[in-house]
Each structure stands twice: as structure tokens, then as C-alpha cells.
Simulated scan of single mutants.
Amino acid sequence: MKKTLAALICASTIMGGAMAENIVRTPAPGNFPISTVVEVPSAVKTYYLSGVVPAKQEDGTFGNTEAQTVSVLKGIEAQLKAKGLEMSDIVKMQVYLVTDPAVGKMDFDGFMKGYSQFFGTEAQPNTPARSAFEVKALYLPEWFVEIEVIAVK
């Protein structure tokens, strides 16, 4: 009986460790670079990153939606690296987009051009489950993009 119990405890420990590495991502149809579902085992550590906004460019502006998206994702990447994480560890993303006056509406195409440099690439194929919202404004009127993420390890 003691040997059976010890074997069960050992097996559950091994299985628990294996499950922590088995994050399952269900890709969106048509190669759209998001996951429709991300399954995360309970044994992982979860990180919630607050919304990140763009940094000023060298010219003193924040740039267009694409440039702001790249800036925000680089900021997220730096925060993740500080915690020993990578962009591939992101499982959920919420995106807030404001109307770009140059476009006259939310510039989803510009966002996707920036986003696609970080997700769904050959070098980094992992894609998060993602929502994108158009919002009236962010704190500074020059900000068109804010992104918050959940990452796991």
C-alpha cells in the first residue's frame, strides 16, 4: 500500500511538472496572428502587466499608430525580460486604440503592422488570445495605443 501511494504521489508530481509546460494555443482561422483560445495549466505562474503606453520618439512626437504599437510592444518586452519572461509567454492581450486624426478612425491596419513584427512570426510563432477596443481617448491626446497583457511561465 505504501509503495502504491508513493508511486501515485511521484506520478502526480511528474505529471504536474509536465502540465506546466503544456500551454495549448488554438490558432485563429486564416492565419490571422492571434489565438482564439489559450489553455493554461493551473501549475504556472501568472503575470499581469498594467497598460503600457508609447514612449516619445527622437523627434519629440509619439508617431502614428504603427510606431506607437512598436514602442508599446518594446516596452512590454523590456518589462517581461526584467521578470525573466519573453513575448512568447504572453497568453492574453487587451489593446486600446484611439482615432488617429491622420486616418480619421481607429487605425487597426497600423496596429496590425506593428503587432505582426512581434507575434505570428517565424522567430516568435506564439500568439496570444487578444481583444482590441476603440476608446474615445487615453490620458494624453497624442497617445493612440495602450496595451495590457497577461503572461505565464
Rank of each mutant, 00 (worst) to 15 (best):
residue 121 T to A: 10
residue 20 A to V: 12
residue 38 V to K: 05
residue 46 T to M: 15
residue 13 T to S: 15
residue 83 K to W: 02
residue 38 V to T: 07
residue 144 F to V: 00
residue 120 G to Y: 05
residue 121 T to E: 00
residue 138 L to R: 03
residue 59 D to P: 10
residue 95 V to Q: 02
residue 1 M to C: 12
residue 35 S to E: 04
residue 42 S to Q: 14
residue 78 A to Q: 12
residue 116 S to L: 06
residue 75 G to L: 00
residue 49 L to Y: 09
residue 27 P to C: 06
residue 144 F to M: 03
residue 59 D to W: 01
residue 51 G to M: 01
residue 96 Y to T: 03
residue 100 D to F: 07
residue 69 T to K: 00
residue 76 I to T: 14
residue 87 M to Y: 05
residue 139 Y to D: 15
residue 69 T to I: 11
residue 72 V to G: 02
residue 85 L to A: 05
residue 4 T to Y: 04
residue 20 A to G: 13
residue 18 A to H: 04
residue 65 T to N: 06
residue 29 P to D: 14
residue 18 A to P: 02
residue 24 V to W: 01
residue 59 D to E: 03
residue 131 S to V: 12
residue 51 G to I: 01
residue 1 M to F: 13
residue 27 P to K: 09
residue 82 A to Q: 13
residue 2 K to A: 14
residue 29 P to C: 02
residue 100 D to P: 00
residue 146 E to N: 04
residue 79 Q to H: 12
residue 63 G to Y: 01
residue 134 E to Q: 12
residue 113 K to F: 01
residue 138 L to T: 11
residue 151 A to H: 06
residue 41 P to W: 03
residue 116 S to D: 02
residue 14 I to H: 05
residue 93 M to Y: 09
residue 123 A to L: 07
residue 13 T to D: 10
residue 113 K to T: 02
residue 55 A to W: 00
residue 100 D to V: 04
residue 103 V to F: 00
residue 124 Q to M: 12
residue 144 F to H: 06
residue 102 A to I: 08
residue 82 A to L: 11
residue 143 W to F: 09
residue 121 T to W: 11
residue 60 G to S: 08
residue 104 G to K: 08
residue 145 V to Q: 01
residue 62 F to K: 10
residue 10 C to M: 14
residue 119 F to L: 02
residue 43 A to V: 14
residue 53 V to I: 12
residue 64 N to R: 11
residue 106 M to S: 03
residue 35 S to L: 07
residue 62 F to D: 10
residue 6 A to W: 09
residue 69 T to V: 07
residue 75 G to W: 00
residue 77 E to H: 09
residue 30 G to N: 15
residue 115 Y to G: 05
residue 34 I to H: 01
residue 23 I to C: 05
residue 121 T to F: 11
residue 112 M to D: 08
residue 148 E to Q: 11
residue 88 S to F: 07
residue 116 S to N: 02
residue 103 V to I: 11
residue 11 A to Y: 04
residue 61 T to M: 03
residue 14 I to N: 07
residue 112 M to H: 10
residue 149 V to P: 08
residue 136 K to P: 01
residue 26 T to V: 15
residue 63 G to K: 03
residue 94 Q to W: 01
residue 59 D to M: 00
residue 62 F to N: 07
residue 6 A to Q: 14
residue 26 T to Y: 05
residue 145 V to S: 00
residue 86 E to V: 09
residue 135 V to P: 09
residue 84 G to E: 11
residue 41 P to H: 14
residue 49 L to M: 10
residue 114 G to R: 07
residue 39 E to R: 14
residue 146 E to A: 13
residue 13 T to Y: 12
residue 15 M to I: 09
residue 118 F to R: 04
residue 13 T to W: 13
residue 80 L to A: 00
residue 123 A to C: 05
residue 140 L to C: 08
residue 109 D to P: 03
residue 21 E to C: 08
residue 103 V to D: 00
residue 32 F to G: 12
residue 106 M to W: 10
residue 150 I to R: 10
residue 115 Y to F: 13
residue 54 P to N: 03
residue 131 S to T: 06
residue 21 E to K: 14
residue 150 I to K: 14
residue 7 A to M: 13
residue 84 G to W: 09
residue 77 E to K: 13
residue 94 Q to E: 02
residue 65 T to L: 13
residue 120 G to Q: 03
residue 150 I to H: 04
residue 88 S to M: 05
residue 43 A to T: 15
residue 112 M to C: 01
residue 137 A to D: 14
residue 75 G to A: 01
residue 55 A to D: 07
residue 72 V to L: 01
residue 124 Q to F: 10
residue 99 T to L: 00
residue 45 K to R: 14
residue 46 T to S: 12
residue 6 A to M: 15
